[in-house]
Amino acid sequence: MRAIRLHAFGPADHLVLDELPDLTPAAGQVRVAVAASGVHLLDTTLRRGEPGPIPLPELPTVPGREVAGTVDAVGDGVDDCWLGSRVVAHLGMVPGGYAEQAVTAVGSLFRVPDGVGVDAAVAAVGTGRTAQGVLELEPPSADDVVLVPSAAGGLGWLLVQAARARGATVVAAACGERKLARLVDLGPDLLVDYGERGWDDVVRAAVGGVTLVYDGVGGEVGRAALELLRPGGRQVLFGFSAGAPTAFDTADVVDRGISVGWSLGPRMAALPGGIPGLAGRALHRVATGEWSPLVTGYPLAEAARAHADLEQRRAMGKVVLRPGA
């Protein structure tokens, strides 16, 4: 099988296409002929050899933890009824997704519903499960004015759709004309370029402040968003693509009368069904048409370009590798 391997930590061009032996599923496992493999921003951190929430892998390694495709082999103890099934899975702490084949425990599988493409299925079990958790922890209402920085990203795209569906007033923020043009399709009430000086003043003038911020950007953008919150407003932190989380202190919370909270980790895992439950509910949203993920796809052999585009914020939506391309 063909697979992308990392032999030494470093820049994106350290990801190389190798030929490896076919995989054999162990007892309780299935082998998936991979049609789509999700690329996460965390993958780029691990590739660089930087510490994070997941331990650095032993090298060489096949990165990636989100796969969708067809079951083409089963291990001992696995019902043959899985053979030929379209499935999607998150591989958990064990990488191996950037390849034509992946093995995983049968219990980690979700059947891909009819009418759902493999790209969308990968988006659901990857960024979709996080978006689902954020929404369950801090749901929007029709009375909210919701600000979504990085709205053209995989998570932001789904959060905008969810807030619109609840009847909220939605401010979608992104950096650059190309991303703003793509966001027009979602019909937000206001589009702003947070790369432009004074973007927060534009928001303040248009809607008089916001009541809910879904913040996966952090840094100066996250701080400016926090200062847009009206009394009683909420800011949900779930990432910091800018390089540092949004800075705030007790005085911000007390003096402004706002709430700020981190949503990932134990808090999200404590939701009903844990992280797998969130993935299942996210996949259901996609299957019913409530969510339509935005995807940027690359051939498997171009994993290095996918990483570079993700790091440089050129890619939009969920980044997916396609082994068959």
Results as ranks from 00 to 15, higher is better:
residue 220 E to W: 01
residue 152 A to I: 07
residue 224 A to G: 05
residue 195 G to C: 09
residue 199 W to V: 04
residue 152 A to R: 10
residue 200 D to K: 04
residue 124 A to P: 06
residue 173 A to E: 09
residue 220 E to N: 01
residue 242 A to D: 07
residue 215 D to W: 11
residue 122 V to E: 06
residue 142 A to C: 09
residue 230 R to C: 08
residue 192 V to L: 05
residue 221 V to H: 05
residue 138 E to M: 12
residue 187 G to T: 01
residue 140 P to S: 15
residue 193 D to R: 10
residue 169 T to C: 11
residue 204 R to S: 11
residue 140 P to Y: 10
residue 208 G to Q: 07
residue 150 S to I: 02
residue 119 D to V: 09
residue 132 Q to A: 14
residue 215 D to P: 04
residue 146 V to H: 01
residue 146 V to L: 04
residue 135 L to M: 14
residue 204 R to Q: 12
residue 223 R to K: 03
residue 173 A to Y: 09
residue 173 A to C: 05
residue 159 L to R: 02
residue 127 T to L: 14
residue 233 G to P: 06
residue 205 A to M: 05
residue 160 V to H: 06
residue 224 A to L: 03
residue 238 F to K: 05
residue 188 P to R: 06
residue 174 A to D: 11
residue 211 T to E: 01
residue 148 V to Y: 11
residue 126 G to H: 02
residue 133 G to M: 12
residue 176 G to V: 02
residue 149 P to Q: 03
residue 148 V to N: 08
residue 210 V to R: 00
residue 226 L to T: 02
residue 195 G to R: 07
residue 153 G to T: 09
residue 175 C to K: 14
residue 126 G to A: 15
residue 230 R to Q: 14
residue 212 L to F: 05
residue 146 V to T: 03
residue 200 D to I: 02
residue 127 T to Q: 15
residue 132 Q to R: 15
residue 153 G to H: 08
residue 120 A to K: 00
residue 184 V to R: 15
residue 165 A to R: 15
residue 204 R to E: 13
residue 195 G to A: 10
residue 240 F to Q: 02
residue 163 A to D: 02
residue 179 K to V: 12
residue 231 P to C: 13
residue 168 A to F: 12
residue 225 A to Q: 00
residue 161 Q to H: 04
residue 133 G to C: 10
residue 119 D to M: 09
residue 158 L to A: 15
residue 167 G to S: 13
residue 185 D to M: 11
residue 123 A to Q: 03
residue 142 A to D: 14
residue 209 G to Y: 06
residue 240 F to I: 07
residue 179 K to A: 13
residue 165 A to T: 08
residue 134 V to Y: 04
residue 133 G to I: 07
residue 216 G to Q: 10
residue 186 L to S: 10
residue 229 L to I: 04
residue 217 V to A: 13
residue 135 L to K: 06
residue 229 L to A: 07
residue 218 G to H: 03
residue 228 L to R: 02
residue 172 A to N: 06
residue 153 G to K: 06
residue 217 V to C: 08
residue 201 D to W: 06
residue 129 R to C: 13
residue 157 W to F: 10
residue 227 E to V: 00
